[in-house]
Design a binder for these strands. Structure first.
Length: 485
RNA sequence: CGGGAAGUAGCUCAGCCAGGUUAGAGUGCACGGUUCGGGACCGUGAGGUCGCGAGUUCGAAUCUCGCCUUCCCGACCA
């Protein structure tokens, strides 16, 4: 009868139902939850702590590359939003409108910002006058709203949190450099901080940001073989600066429109971290952003007061040695057995676990278990503290190697549409193919395999003039073709 | 927004088809005790306007309609 009853303490295995596994992990690890507001999630302290660490790492890169943070309004008057035609058309279906303030109906509707190019351009039209005012290099951390039809925790919610960088430059080459530089920051964040495997590239015309000349992205691979667009960087050319009449007097005393870029990375990346690394026990967090990097589980026995005292002293010692270097937490909760605590912190993806028990302690050592691969080791109590940073780095490297192997195992080289079909016969993959980048060929590619799209044209590889998989003409690019979130 | 499924305790679910005492189980939670090297055990206890709103009925978790939310498959998208 009740064969469908599941162990409420277990999470759905990945292999059984990946989507349910994902939701189970997000909720059980207390990263985020649903709210009474349709399509909107609440990010809980553990999830927000993770985001803060991601944010801080990226914020440092944004500052390092010369940008300053500022803050723009949440609301955008309709008349401002609608000046750049392509942009308006792109966002129209997903803009939320405020039509009333208090009891009074507004004379002009206010959009809840879906992104801030329009308000930023409106303001900078007043602030940019001379080539000496350029470049403008700014960023804001903010929430934005897009009325999505179908939402998923972290991956696509009506309201989400991100940073949006906006810059204005004298030349298109400068803007181009900026676009690539910031995509590089996203790649650095994904690889060096989040241990993810990503592919950088340029979006096709049909996939680019509405209003951009071109869009760059990093595409990450999830452990079910699907792609996740994890950061985007746009060259806006002069599309907005013309529409919003931003002009400056150039070095040659002529009136010019600046070239513009924008780039963003959102809380979606948290979903990427979960789906890149998680396993059937729950989260596996990248050490450099994990809110808790090391958890210490003391083993105490009520019939062994001396041993317990030694265990407690060892825990205090570890705390003191970790202070300021490693985010370490001692799980001193009473009434929970050790095994329960192991499961608790494994679900939350803590990279390293130290078990302090009197048995090991009698020999002056403690046990240490690595979350990513379950490797166990015994280390002298006196050495553990100073070795933690290196152990965390090792865990990062292992996680990154595993992610790269995932990408390698799911990558295929195809030369024709038939080979493309064959590559997807046994499940989702990243298919690499010579591609001419003509819209007609993109349509053919999408028609060849269910639900695939051209994710990007790789910037780290060239088509070398080999025949396009669709039309056979010499192709400049290697396209990554995959199913995506 | 189209097609499908589901909403009963924090979680996983039974009960609904054939309406009828005080709505159940496991797990979790609180307290006490025994435990403690991989999700312990005993005892006590708290916890539910059965998603929301109408309707049918003497009587609705159960039947009907509407709405909301979530999940799955599409179309759209960071």
């Amino acid at each position: 009868m009740s064969t469908t009853t599941r162990d409420p303490k277990a999470i759905t295995p990945k292999s059984e139902d990946f989507d349910r596994w994902y939701v189970d992990v997000v909720r059980r690890a207390e990263l985020a939850d649903y709210t009474p507001v349709g399509g909107c999630m609440v990010v809980r302290p553990y999830g927000w702590g993770l985001w803060e660490n991601v944010r801080d790492a990226l914020d440092a890169m944004i500052k390092r590359t010369g940008h300053e943070n500022m803050q723009f309004p949440l609301f955008i008057p309709e008349s401002l939003l609608t000046k750049e035609a392509e942009h308006v058309e792109g966002f129209a279906p997903e803009v939320a409108w405020v039509t009333q303030g208090g009891q009074k109906k507004l004379e002009e509707r206010l959009a809840v910002r879906p992104t801030s190019e329009t308000i930023i351009c409106t303001l900078y039209a007043d602030w940019i006058h001379s080539w000496r005012d350029l470049p403008v290099l700014i960023n804001q951390w903010a929430n934005v709203v897009r009325w999505e039809k179908r939402t998923r925790l972290f991956l696509r919610t009506t309201e989400f949190f991100w940073q949006e960088g906006h810059t204005f430059h004298e030349t298109t080459d400068e803007a181009k450099f900026e676009v690539e530089q910031m995509l590089g920051c996203y790649r650095e964040l994904a690889e060096e901080w989040l241990a993810m495997a990503v592919i950088p590239g340029r979006k096709t015309e049909s996939e680019k940001f509405a209003g951009a000349d071109y869009t760059m992205s990093i595409e990450a691979i999830m452990s079910d073989g699907l792609a996740l667009q994890s950061g985007t960087s746009h060259h806006l050319g002069q599309n907005f600066t013309r529409a919003y009449n931003i002009t400056y007097t150039g070095r040659d005393n002529t009136v010019q429109h600046p070239f513009q870029t924008s780039w963003g990375l959102s809380t979606r990346i948290i979903g990427g971290v979960i789906m890149s690394h998680g396993d059937d026990r729950g989260l596996v967090l990248p050490p450099r952003v994990a809110p808790v990097q090391v958890v210490v589980v003391p083993i105490e026995r009520s019939n062994d007061p001396e041993g317990t005292e030694a265990v407690r002293a060892a825990c205090v010692r570890l705390e003191e040695e970790a202070a300021g270097r490693v985010r370490l937490r001692v799980d001193r909760r009473e009434g929970h057995r050790p095994g329960e605590k192991y499961a608790h912190w494994e679900l939350r993806g803590v990279p390293l676990r130290i078990v302090v028990g009197s048995r090991d302690l009698a020999e002056g050592s403690v046990s240490l278990v690595r979350r990513v691969d379950g490797a166990e080791m015994r280390l002298p109590l006196g050495e553990v503290g100073e070795r933690l940073p290196a152990l965390l780095d090792e865990a990062h490297v292992l996680l990154r190697e595993r992610a790269l192997k995932l990408l390698e195992d799911h990558s295929r080289e195809v030369a024709t549409l038939d080979e493309l079909r064959g590559a997807f016969a046994d499940g989702p993959v990243f298919a690499n193919a010579p591609f001419c980048d003509r819209p007609e060929c993109e349509v053919e590619v999408k028609a060849a395999v269910h639900a695939v799209t051209v994710r990007c044209l790789r910037t780290d590889r060239s088509g070398e003039g080999r025949p396009c998989l669709a039309c056979g003409t010499p192709a400049e690019h290697i396209a990554v073709i995959a199913r995506a979130y």
